[in-house]
Amino acid sequence: MSLTVRRIGPACTLQDQGRTGFLDQGLSRSGAADILALHEGAALLGQSPDCAALEMAGMGGEFEASQPTRIALTGAPMKASIDGSPVVWNASHQLTQGQRLVIGAALQGNYGYLHVGGGVEAAVFLGSRSTHLTAKIGRVVQAGDVLAAGPDTGNTGLKLIPSERFSGGVLHVVASFQTSLFDNTALDRFARTKFRRGTRANRMGMQLESDGDGFAAKGQLNILSEVITPGDIQMTGTGSPFILLPECQTTGGYPRIATVLPCDMPRAAQTPAGAPIRFEFVTIDQAMALHTRFQSELAHLPRQVEPLLRDPHDIADLLSYQLISGVISATD
């Protein structure tokens, strides 16, 4: 079970659920930007969500199966084909030896995921296979690399209906320890502001833009450096917010106005440049209810998997893809 990388986009890395326990050494968690997509891929292949997958930021690549290999495609939908025949996203597929999987640019969202049966095998460093580019742990995947996988048997031809999260929307936030550094006027305005995702974004964080003034805290320049967690909304010197992502720094002096709930981080990370974002403050009790529901949705994903071709809607969809692409003739 392995895939040889023939072509690859500029920002593809191996990711699992990240490494825990090294915050005190200045090393943040890393891990998939869209944890839900990691669980969806695991459900489609009937394996553990701890398996590593290829995270493809914006653009996929071309992969050749050196051996028969099961794959699943999740996260930001991207145009995908096997030996020229379009294949459905959010589904699992079988590659026979020598077949070529081509994955194009994201049609919606940012981060697409390529999962292989058995999980991508790579050296485990401090308990995780996650690349952490800013810490120089691992590197981007390059043409010529081999994505090897562990022993694997199982079905393919399964699909999942993904939860919609690829065009921005409302992110639920809780107050955090620095929220009170902002006065009520600033907090109210923050909660009413229609933000757009800016153009500056990577696995460390994503910039938000809005019309009107920035958001400054009291004594902003004299704040002691404190712990940072993914999901924190950090105000930079200019008062424009960044949502911090899995490769964020572990400490910092810029104040954080609030923290996005873990259950809404997939939506945050998948929001494309220019798409709208609003923040809604919830209490810890409300947040716990949302969090518990998310955990239970993750746990139920394996039961949501359905056969790919039984649903006439999908068959019609598949045909329309084929007509558009024109690569399949009636006599094939």
Binding site: V174, F177, L224, E226, V227, T229, T259, L261, I284, M288
Partner: peptide, 16 residues
């Protein structure tokens, strides 16, 4: 104080 949904912070002073 709380840190997001899943953290607590015990602060011993506002200066080093």
């Amino acid at each position: 104080r709380t840190v997001g949904l899943d953290g607590a912070l015990v602060t011993f002073g506002d200066a080093v």
